Amino acid sequence: MHVELRSDTFTLPTQAMREAMFAAPLGDDVFGEDPSVNALEQKVAEMFGMEAALFCVSGTQTNQIAMSVHLSKGQEVICDELSHIYLYEGGGIMANAGASVKLLKGDLGRLTRAQIEAAISPDDIHACESKLVSLENTVNKGGGSVYSSESLQEISDFCRHINIPLHLDGARIFNAMAVTGQTPKQFGAWFDSISVCLSKGLGAPVGSVLLGSHAFIKQARRVRKRLGGGWRQAGLLAAAGIYALDQHVTRLKEDHARAKEIALICAGLPWVDSILPVTTNIVIVQLKEGIRSVDQVAELKSKGIFCAPFGPQYIRFVTHLNFDDAALSAFKAQIIQ
């Protein structure tokens, strides 16, 4: 059996989602006339208690649009060294916004108010201006780690106090909420802009939504067009996003439970040294000394288990909508062959 655990981006639309897609009313989104896109944007904005939203092709696009709106050339964004916006978006902060990055070392990718406060550049012409703080929740490279409400409130209060915007890369934000019990409206109150992915744990085929104020989204729409991101009858994809938000949020806890089972299985394997704490749907395994991740990934692939190298001695497993109990049983049987 093919056991797919490389990423939650490998999910395929369910039959019900496909039916919703084909039934979607369509128009030209560049002209603002696709009713399904408009409905998705309104739905997500209202869900998070924010003024406006913009439907885009990917989380990288929404993050990079946010960087370009918030930052100007010669300014900097403060983020953790494990941040997706820094590691996995093709150098977009520099290429798109012309901005610099100040990297901090947090706890599994999570920063504190004290760290951020200490990192703010002085008001000095020799220093790069600190003009944005960006957090990630859950933290991909942190093994799906999540922020507490107390920490987010402290960081939000500080950023508001010094008048620096706070952005959230919320690619797996609904996974975080499934653990903490936080609500979308809480995040809308904490952050000035939010990127929400629909194509990971929620199982839509394509798309992310960028949230912010009316003025912010107006600028974001212009940047999206400049990046070639204006699309036409995108309502087919927006309908999938609407269906995912309505049907696939509450089931995320199932993915988390299966991720914990994977961690328990892996803990007893002879090639495993340690495992990062498993909070959501990501399992990051550290290999024993002398074992390379590319070799171990190849070995698992030969057994029908597909996972991803995550550094020289780390591999990542990610549970998702299409990884069910039968797949978990197959994983357990095949990994010990």
Rank of each mutant, 00 (worst) to 15 (best):
S145F: 02
L166K: 05
G106W: 02
K303F: 03
F31M: 15
C79Q: 07
L328A: 07
T280I: 08
C197T: 09
L198C: 12
G181M: 10
L328R: 03
Q186E: 15
L211I: 09
G230V: 01
L198S: 10
E299I: 04
T183S: 15
A23P: 04
I265S: 13
I262A: 01
E150I: 08
I65H: 04
D8S: 15
N137L: 00
R258Y: 05
Q42I: 05
A20Y: 11
S199R: 08
G32L: 06
N137Q: 04
L328Q: 05
N163V: 06
F216P: 02
Q296R: 12
D324K: 11
D192T: 13
K260L: 12
A239N: 08
R110I: 14
P312A: 14
G201I: 04
S274F: 06
E289P: 01
K260H: 08
M177I: 05
L252H: 03
L71T: 01
A257Q: 13
F310I: 00
G290W: 06
E19Y: 03
L166A: 06
C266S: 07
T60D: 12
S156H: 10
D107N: 14
S195G: 12
M47Y: 11
N96K: 13
D124K: 07
P277H: 04
T279D: 01
I173L: 10
E51R: 09
S83F: 00
S213G: 09
N281W: 01
L211P: 03
I275Q: 04
V69G: 10
K260D: 02
R160L: 10
D273M: 08
N281R: 14
L132H: 08
K218W: 00
A53I: 07
S58V: 05
G98Q: 10
I78Y: 05
C197A: 15
